[in-house]
């Protein structure tokens, strides 16, 4: 079983390496861009560092915000039986696939200065982008948390209670038992937030020094002939996504 678990990432890594190798061999522009990108990363280019840190800050804030409401919602849906439970679960599942541009447009209409929530000054603001991303990742986090909680043996809650836990402590015991699934929900949500373009572009508009993040810069610079910066940022984006997943796995094994 452990063998099978290792095969999938190794295969993915091989495929990814083959793809990059093909690009290096066949596209001269990519070759040159990659050289420059590596130089930019190694030399610690201030713009690259700034954009990277802002991306982590915005998506990290979005994930933290989403955790505040999504995990309790997931816990309640997973543990409680209530009228319309299947509908609510289905709704969150369906919302996972919402097009980011569509959500970005709705948020733009709500948060722009002429919108009903314009007074909050979240438009063209990193916190506004974080709020937008938090809304985007809420369905992912809620659905994954619900599934993780439902996968825990139903007797665990009774066990915690008979050992002396209150209702809240028993719910936390169930949450602890579902750590692996909930971690996946958080990591997956962060990765979705940091890699998305639609919401961040519609709310942040890629303003240098304010709302410019990895994805918006990659999109903008690749169309304005600054391919080396795009490649550098794309490499960083992939490294962040892989590192977060890897770190989460390591932490889970450490604290089991």
């Amino acid at each position: 079983m452990a063998h099978k678990n290792k095969i999938v990432p190794v295969l993915f890594l091989i495929l990814f390496s083959i793809m990059v190798a093909i690009l290096i061999v066949s596209v001269e522009e990519f070759r040159e861009g990659l050289k420059e990108a590596i130089t930019l990363i190694i030399s610690g280019n201030p713009e690259v560092i700034e954009i990277t840190l802002r991306s982590i800050y915005i998506s990290g804030t979005a994930t933290a915000l989403a955790i505040i409401w999504s995990i309790p919602i997931g816990l309640v849906i997973g543990l409680k039986d209530f009228f319309g439970k299947h509908f609510v679960k289905g709704l969150f599942h369906a919302l996972i696939g919402i097009p980011t541009v569509a959500l970005g447009l709705v948020l733009y209409l709500l948060l722009s200065s002429s919108g009903p929530f314009g007074f909050l000054n979240l438009f063209l603001n990193p916190i506004g982008v974080a709020v937008g991303q938090a809304i985007l990742i809420t369905p992912i986090m809620v659905s994954f948390t619900t599934s993780a909680v439902e996968a825990v043996e139903p007797e665990i809650k009774d066990l915690a209670k008979t050992l002396g836990a209150s209702e809240v402590e028993a719910a936390l015991a169930v949450l602890k038992e579902s750590t692996a699934g909930v971690s996946l929900a958080v990591v997956g949500s962060f990765n979705r937030a940091i890699a998305e373009l639609g919401v961040v572009y519609m709310i942040g508009q890629n303003i240098r020094g304010q709302t410019r993040v990895l994805t918006t810069t990659i999109a903008m610079e690749s169309t304005s002939a600054n391919i080396s910066l795009s490649i550098a940022l794309a490499i960083i984006l992939v490294v962040i996504v892989f590192s977060v997943s890897l770190l989460s796995n390591l932490l889970q094994r450490r604290f089991k």
């Binding site: 007797e155 665990i156 038992e177 089991k256």
Partner: peptide, 8 residues
Amino acid sequence: FQKTTLFN
């Protein structure tokens, strides 16, 4: 419990 239940 009859069904052995343990924390992970």
